[in-house]
């Protein structure tokens, strides 16, 4: 098993009660989660049945924003560990009322779940909710703030392919402004010693982005030069009012990833995308489907393993227990 650390798995060593973001996690915390996830990748591939690590525990998925892949991934992760998983989707009309968020939190808290997995359209909303509950909370994406499990699964994908994170040159391209994935990835990659570049038109970059410890490029070929990893982001048109870019045609011409732009990156550069992809908008179909270079499907697989690790660590830490899975192995 390609575990990177010699330290035995100990969820009590994880210093946080909730996983609200990557910012504030140490290299050790991140490695703890990645190492555990790494073990689950192998287990998921080899073992058919369920584990009973979290048997009798309840995981609630609380999604205030629509989601298919993240919610399914968490659901599968929870079930693989033997927990009961409940999906609550909150209708988009009622989330406009802010009381709903606190009230929903109070209501669910009274049902004593062990973990709440929360996605919300407003930055900081998951933190607000976490202050009102007794269980552990995992941020499954809050506004344009953070999406920690996505960054962890991206890191796991990279680490398994490249053997390390430290010293890699990573380009994150596209709609950085609206992207929680970008923020979580920037924090994680910086913490683990990778070097991060952002490539986007100025209208899709947040103010003072360079203060996050990254290099900023407006030109794809300049930014992609000698990169080990190319992370493409989805254009989040649903979060855009007007005029972030004039036309899809022009955007694709300058910022869509195709082989012509990719040729300046390292020959073995890995292509990633958090999904869902807009083919022909931010990425060419043939690049996305290039089995040799695209890790896009692998990312989905890593997602389940990473979420298993997160659910397990937070649940067991809160319960102050030792992991049952460890006893068996």
């Amino acid at each position: 098993m390609p575990s990177m650390s010699e330290t035995p798995f100990n969820p009590a060593a994880f210093p946080k009660r909730h996983l609200l973001g990557i910012e504030g996690l140490s290299p050790l915390d991140i490695t703890l989660l990645l190492d555990r996830a790494d073990e689950y990748v192998e287990l998921n591939r080899s073992v058919g049945g369920k584990l009973d690590t979290l048997a009798g525990r309840t995981v609630m998925n609380l999604f205030f924003e629509s989601s298919t892949r993240t919610r399914t991934s968490f659901e599968l992760a929870g079930k693989r560990l033997g927990s009961d998983v409940i999906n609550m989707s909150v209708s988009t009309s009622s989330i406009k009322k802010g009381e709903t968020l606190i009230d929903t939190a109070m209501t669910l808290n009274a049902m004593h779940p062990d973990v709440l997995v929360v996605r919300h359209g407003s930055s900081g909303a998951v933190k607000l909710l976490s202050e009102k509950v007794n269980c552990a909370v995992i941020n499954a994406g809050d506004g344009r703030h953070e999406h920690p499990t996505q960054a962890l699964l991206d890191a796991l994908t990279i680490r398994r392919r490249k053997g390390r994170l430290d010293g890699l040159q990573v380009a994150i391209c596209g709609d950085i402004l609206h992207s929680r994935v970008a923020r979580s990835n920037i924090h994680l990659l910086n913490t683990m010693g990778a070097r991060v570049r952002l490539i986007a038109p100025k209208t899709l970059l947040p103010a003072q982005a360079e203060r996050l410890g990254v290099e900023v490029f407006y030109d794809m070929k300049a930014g992609l030069r000698d990169c080990d990893i190319v992370m493409m982001l989805r254009l989040q048109t649903e979060r855009m009012k007007t005029n972030f870019f004039p036309t899809v045609r022009e955007y694709y011409h300058f910022y869509g990833l195709d082989y012509a732009k990719l040729e300046v990156a390292k020959p073995d550069a890995l292509i990633m995308h958090p999904g869902p992809m807009n083919r022909g908008v931010e990425i060419a179909s043939d690049v996305a489907d290039d089995i040799g270079r695209s890790a896009i499907r692998e990312q989905v697989e890593m997602g389940v393993a990473v979420r298993m690790a997160c659910l397990e660590v937070l649940t067991l830490k809160l319960a102050g227990e030792q992991p049952k899975a460890e006893d068996k192995s």
């Binding site: 930055s123 900081g124 344009r144 103010a207 203060r211 996050l212």
Partner: peptide
């Protein structure tokens, strides 16, 4: 200032909040 909720700058960028320049 439309949709802005705090001062534009590093803090807003970190918090993922829309800035008012």
């Amino acid at each position: 200032a439309e949709e802005g909720v705090m001062n534009e700058g590093e803090t807003a960028t970190r918090l993922g909040l829309t800035g008012i320049p």
